[in-house]
């Protein structure tokens, strides 16, 4: 057994085990932590496949940003663990059905692809000596340029939507206006007066 194969089995085992623990863990925060472990070890699998750029982006985007926010939300929620467990058996058949449908669909996709690979419009493979990043970049910005831009536009709309939903103007909140502070001069606010004793201003 080569080292690469051994490492593959370690990563594969950790990924599957932590994916199982995501749904099996009693505490939701533990579930999220196991989800993060699953992400990281699947990044390891990407590296073994030679897709190092995708591996790093997976860690940066999903683990570094998305999962942090997710963890925040789960930590802040006041969840009753017992109540959360109650419906588990009741929903099990539905979950199993969805899983089965997905499995059959995947089998169908891979089955047809194996039979007629030539029919599918496969993206060209990178020539040897071209790095991952270069290959992906030259595909995304040439062949799939419009799709790439559309994806960006959709994300932008999502950002604008999220901001408009949560934006509130609170007139009572005190805010710091830096430029106003910087442009304030002593002559605007200070006045020197001569005050005679025993008489006010």
């Amino acid at each position: 057994m080569t080292i690469a194969l051994f490492v593959f089995y370690v990563f594969a085992l950790v990924t599957t085990a932590s994916a199982v623990m995501v749904i099996a863990a009693r505490n939701p925060v533990h579930s999220v932590l196991f989800l993060i472990l699953a992400f990281v070890s699947s990044a390891g699998l990407f590296v073994l496949l030679g897709a190092e750029f995708l591996a790093m982006v997976l860690v940066v985007v999903y683990v570094g940003a998305v999962a942090v926010l997710f963890l925040f939300v789960v930590m802040m929620l006041d969840i009753d663990f017992v109540q959360l467990r109650e419906g588990f058996l009741q929903y099990l058949p539905v979950g199993a059905l969805v899983g089965l449908v997905l499995l059959v669909e995947l089998a169908l996709v891979f089955g047809t692809q194996a039979v007629e690979t030539a029919a599918v419009d496969m993206p060209p493979t990178a020539p040897p000596g071209v790095t991952n990043t270069e290959a992906l970049g030259s595909l995304l910005y040439t062949r799939y340029f419009y799709l790439f831009q559309t994806a960006g536009a959709i994300l932008l709309v999502a950002i604008v939507g999220a901001i408009t939903l949560t934006l509130r103007h609170r007139p009572d909140a005190k805010r710091q206006d830096i430029s106003r502070q910087v442009h304030r001069r002593p002559s605007d606010t200070l006045e020197v007066r001569k005050v005679r004793p025993r008489s006010g201003i």
Binding site: E52, M56, V60, V63, G64, V68, L71, T133
Partner: peptide
């Protein structure tokens, strides 16, 4: 000497937050 060294460092530093949150 990996080709995505900068991204690797960026990924590692973005994981650093987990120690503190945990």
């Amino acid at each position: 000497d990996i080709n995505v060294g900068v991204l690797y460092l960026f990924a590692v530093s973005s994981l650093g937050v987990y120690g503190i949150v945990m």
